[in-house]
C-alpha cells in the first residue's frame, strides 16, 4: 500500500528550518544562551547527496560541553524531521568571542555575566603582558560601573573569569575575550 508522502522540503526551507531548530538548543553551561547566540554553528548546508551538513566550532579545545551540545543539536534537528544529516567539528577558523551575537551579548548581561570586549587578533608574537596590569576591564553587569578589578582570570567554566565591581562591591563573572 502506498502512503502519501509529505511534499519534500526545498533545500532553502530545510536549511531555514534547521537554523530555526538550532535557535532553541541551549548551551548546557550557560542555558540562557542558544548555540546560535554563541556563534557556535558556522554553516548549515545541503550537500550533493541531499545530506544536511552542519559545521560546529567548539569554544575551547577541552570544553566538556562540546559533546552534550552536539548531541542536543542532533536531537533538535531530528525532532524537526530534517532528514539525513552529518555534524562535523571545525577547529579552523578558531571560534572567537567576536562571533557572539548582539542578542547573545544582551542575554549574557541580563544573566549577570559581563559580555566580552573585542578579541584582539592574536599572532603569537605579542610580548607577555601580566594580568595585574590593567587590560580593558569589563563593566559591571549589575550597576554598569566601569571601575572593576580581576579576582581570578579563570572561572567556573573555561570561557569565564571572575571580577569585582569597585563601585557597587558586587562580584561578577565575565566572558573572556578570545
Amino acid at each position: 500500500m502506498v502512503t502519501a508522502l509529505a511534499a519534500p522540503m526545498h533545500h532553502s526551507e530545510r536549511v531555514a528550518a534547521a537554523w530555526q531548530a538550532l535557535g532553541h538548543v541551549p548551551d548546557p553551561e550557560i542555558p540562557m544562551l542558544s548555540v546560535l547566540d554563541l556563534g557556535l554553528v558556522r554553516a548549515v548546508e545541503i550537500d550533493a547527496h541531499g545530506v544536511l551538513q552542519l559545521h560546529f566550532s567548539p569554544t575551547y579545545c577541552g570544553c566538556p560541553a562540546t559533546e552534550t551540545i552536539m548531541r542536543a543539536m542532533r536531537q533538535a534537528l531530528e525532532a524537526a524531521g530534517l532528514g539525513p544529516m552529518q555534524l562535523s567539528l571545525k577547529l579552523s577558523p578558531a571560534w572567537t568571542t567576536d562571533w557572539i551575537t548582539p542578542q547573545g551579548r544582551r542575554r549574557l548581561a541580563e544573566a549577570g555575566i559581563a559580555p566580552p570586549g573585542p578579541a584582539r587578533p592574536f599572532d603569537g608574537t605579542a610580548p607577555i603582558r601580566l594580568v595585574r596590569r590593567p587590560a580593558a576591564a569589563p563593566a559591571c553587569p549589575h550597576c554598569r560601573g566601569t571601575d572593576t578589578t580581576v579576582l581570578s582570570p579563570f572561572g567556573s567554566t573555561a570561557c569565564k573569569a571572575y571580577h569585582r565591581c569597585l563601585v557597587c562591591g558586587e562580584p561578577f563573572e565575565s566572558f573572556k575575550p578570545l
Binding site: Y60, C61, L91, S92, A94, I128, L130, V131, P153, L178
Partner: peptide
C-alpha cells in the same frame, strides 16, 4: 586547525604563569 585555537589558550596560560 588545532594550532589556531590552541595558541590562544597557551598564551592565556602563559600570562597567568608569568603573573
Amino acid at each position: 586547525g588545532l594550532a589556531h585555537k590552541a595558541i590562544k589558550e597557551a598564551a592565556y596560560h602563559q600570562r597567568h604563569a608569568a603573573d
